[in-house]
C-alpha cells in the first residue's frame, strides 16, 4: 500500500523534469521517510540523487518499503499535464500501475504502468572537494543559459574572491563573475577549475525554480556535485568533467 497527496505539484513536476531527460527509467524507493531515486545515466556521466521527504507531501502513507520501477519520461509527460492541480498518487499493485490523479473542478486519473528495472550497482567515487560554494539557484541557471549561447561546454572556476562561470566558442566568449559576497557560503581552500558539458547542465538547472539554494562542490578536473535544496527536498547531481585537450 502506498498513497501520497501533494497540494502543490510544483516540487514533483520540476524535479522529475530535471532528471527525466538524463535517465529514462529508474527504481524509486518508497519508505516511511519519503521517496528516493538514485540513478546514473546510461553513459555514466551523471548521477542523480533525488530525495523527497514525506514532509514535502500533504499526506504520505506507506505500509512497508517498496521499489517502484518507473519510466521517468512517461511520468514527466503525465506530470506536465498537472497544471496547478492537486496531485494524488496511489499504487495499484494488483494491476501493477501507479494511479496519478489530478484534482481540481474535475478529477483526471492517469495509469502509469510500472516497469521492471535492473538494479545497477552504483560505484560512485569518493571525492574530496576543495571548494564548496552556496549561491541562489537563479544565478547558476542564468549563467548556464548565457553559456549555451556560445558553446556546448562551460568552465567552472573559483579563486579566493570569486566564482567564474565561463564559456568559449567560435562565435565569442562569455564570462559570469559571482563575487564572494553574493554567495550564501563560500569555502575555498584553493583555486580550482573544471569543465562540463552543457547538455547535462541545462537539464540540471531545471531544478532551480523549486530550490532555495544550490551548493556547488568543485575541484580540479574532477566531477562537480550540485545540491539543489529546499526545506523538504534535495536534488543532488554528480557530473563527470570534460577532458580539456589543450
Amino acid at each position: 500500500m502506498f498513497k501520497a497527496r501533494l497540494a502543490d505539484p510544483k516540487i514533483l513536476k520540476y524535479s522529475i523534469d530535471a532528471v527525466s531527460n538524463m535517465i529514462d527509467e529508474a527504481g524509486v524507493s518508497v519508505t516511511k521517510d519519503g521517496l528516493r531515486l538514485k540513478a546514473m545515466d546510461p553513459a555514466h556521466v551523471a548521477l542523480v540523487d533525488l530525495e523527497l521527504k514525506k514532509e514535502a507531501f500533504d499526506e504520505f502513507e506507506v505500509e512497508e518499503p517498496l521499489v517502484l520501477g518507473i519510466d521517468l519520461e512517461r511520468l514527466n509527460t503525465i506530470l506536465k499535464r498537472a497544471g496547478t492541480d492537486q496531485i494524488l498518487i496511489q499504487l495499484d499493485s494488483e494491476n501493477n500501475v501507479l494511479k496519478i490523479r489530478f484534482k481540481n473542478s474535475s478529477t483526471r486519473t492517469f495509469d502509469l504502468p510500472l516497469i521492471e528495472v535492473s538494479e545497477e550497482e552504483l560505484k560512485v567515487p569518493n571525492l574530496d572537494f576543495p571548494s564548496q560554494i552556496e549561491i541562489p539557484p537563479k544565478i547558476l541557471s542564468e549563467s548556464i543559459k548565457d553559456a549555451e549561447i556560445v558553446s556546448d561546454h562551460v568552465t567552472l572556476m573559483v579563486d579566493e574572491e570569486n566564482l567564474f562561470i565561463s564559456a568559449k566558442g567560435d562565435l565569442g566568449n562569455v564570462e559570469v563573475k559571482v563575487p564572494k559576497d553574493e554567495a550564501k557560503s563560500f569555502e575555498v581552500s584553493k583555486s580550482c577549475r573544471s569543465m562540463f558539458s552543457l547538455e547535462y547542465l541545462k537539464d540540471m538547472i531545471k531544478a532551480s525554480d523549486i530550490a532555495d539554494s544550490v551548493k556547488i562542490y568543485l575541484g580540479d578536473n574532477i566531477p562537480v556535485r550540485m545540491d539543489f535544496t529546499t526545506e523538504n527536498a534535495r536534488l543532488s547531481f554528480l557530473l563527470a568533467p570534460r577532458i580539456e585537450s589543450e
Binding site: M40, H44, V45, A46, P125, P223, A240, R242, I243, S245
Partner: peptide, 11 residues
C-alpha cells in the same frame, strides 16, 4: 582515443 568527456566510473 580523443574523448573529451570523462565518466563517473568505467567498468
Amino acid at each position: 582515443k580523443r574523448k573529451t568527456q570523462a565518466s563517473l566510473f568505467a567498468k
